[in-house]
Write a protein that binds this DNA or RNA. Structure first.
Length: 355
DNA sequence: AAGACGTGGCT
DNA sequence: TAGCCAAGTCT
């Protein structure tokens, strides 16, 4: 292990690379414009950072465009209906983000006059903004020299300094290294540069060390250990749960759905009524008595912590009162894209067999 | 403080 | 195919 005293040229090297290779992203102000004094809209920085939590740029792009077209400013988002925001978020995952997005927009509008606070601590106090996002907004939107720690930065630091301690134990050491490198000039561009580097060149598998701006100082590259870093604790295997979803269609095409409770899996989202999802098969629990027909195929879906095998049963909904806690949605008002993916899979399966 | 919390792309 | 992985936060 060679000496690891901080090298003040490291951040400068990365910023030079970023000036030439920064990705063109819809929420980003290009480095040339930033150097000319143009700063990004904090609303767009916040929205993009929340969407990017545990989510790839490729998945976020279209959602970002739809959100900003529909709600161009934080006050507009704050005034939106919950169901519209949840529907627009559908498919992006981690739905607590959407619930907190609305809470945050309403807090910024009501408590901060529609202006995002420009300091880390007040950002951190807002719903859905944790240590990473508070630092990222501070740095990117307000050019504050925050230490921005995300998965990219952890990986880049683990490799640059050849740190073999497994995550999450390595986090303090990785953060100390990141703090050493964070520059006082252009901290916003620097933060975006490290994340770009991690997302493109210093990727988890087969990093492109040959074209990396930090290939010379990178200790893992010298040691040949870059592809195996950072080390991680082994993951637990996912159990398989099973359940039944019930799709009821009235003669005029209207569909019977439920709004899921705000907490827990798919919280706040629209879905088909059904049994709980459990490893041991649960009792049949149709929303009303009918001649339910089970589809031959089944939905397979994997969540963060379990696999799901979902059987789908369909029936005709008779005219009359709607069962409690369920919503009848006219077919013209029903958008499959409002459903979380697992529910949309069930819909696709049913419609493919029924229509 | 460890587990809950989604999804799609890549290997 | 099955597992790994992504610009984390909340409880």
């Amino acid at each position: 292990m060679r000496d690891t005293s901080p090298d003040p040229a490291l951040s400068a090297t990365l910023l030079e690379w970023y000036d030439r290779h920064a990705r063109d992203l819809p929420w980003r102000v290009a480095p040339a414009a930033r150097r000319a004094g143009v700063m990004p809209d904090p609303y767009r920085v916040w929205l993009s950072e929340v969407m990017l939590q545990q989510t790839t740029v490729a998945a976020v792009r279209d959602y970002f465009h739809r959100f900003t077209r529909r709600w161009p400013r934080v006050e507009a988002l704050a005034a939106a209906e919950d169901a519209d925001v949840m529907g627009e978020w559908a498919g992006l995952g981690y739905y607590a983000r959407a619930r907190n997005l609305l809470k945050c927009a309403r807090a910024v509008t009501a408590d901060h006059g529609g202006v995002f606070p420009d300091d880390h601590d007040r950002l951190l106090a807002l719903p859905g903004i944790g240590p990473y996002t508070a630092a990222a907004i501070s740095a990117i939107a307000f050019d504050r020299p925050e230490v921005v720690m995300d998965g990219n930065v952890e990986r880049v630091m683990a490799r640059l300094f050849d740190i073999h301690t497994p995550l999450p134990d390595a986090k303090p050491a990785l953060k100390a290294r990141a703090a050493q490198l964070t520059p006082r000039t252009r901290p916003g561009d620097y933060a975006q540069a490290v994340m770009d580097l991690g997302a493109t060149i210093c990727s988890p598998k087969s990093p492109a060390c040959g074209i990396c701006p930090w290939r010379d100082p990178c200790q893992a590259r010298s040691a040949g250990t870059a592809p195996e870093l950072p080390k991680k604790q082994p993951k637990k295997t996912k159990p398989t749960r099973r359940g039944i979803a019930y799709i009821a269609e009235r003669a005029d095409g209207a569909l019977l759905l439920e709004r899921r409770p705000d907490s827990g899996l798919l919280g706040g989202m629209l879905g088909w009524p059904g049994t709980p999802w459990a490893e041991t098969p649960t009792e049949d629990a149709p929303p009303f008595a009918a001649d339910w027909q089970e589809l031959e195929a089944e939905v397979r879906h994997t969540f963060t912590h379990f696999h799901l095998i979902l059987r789908v049963r369909a029936a005709r909904l008779p005219d009359g009162p709607v069962p409690p806690r369920l919503h009848l949605i006219e077919r013209t008002a029903f958008r499959p894209s409002d459903l979380p993916t697992v529910m949309r899979k069930a819909y696709d399966l049913w419609r493919g067999g029924a229509a």
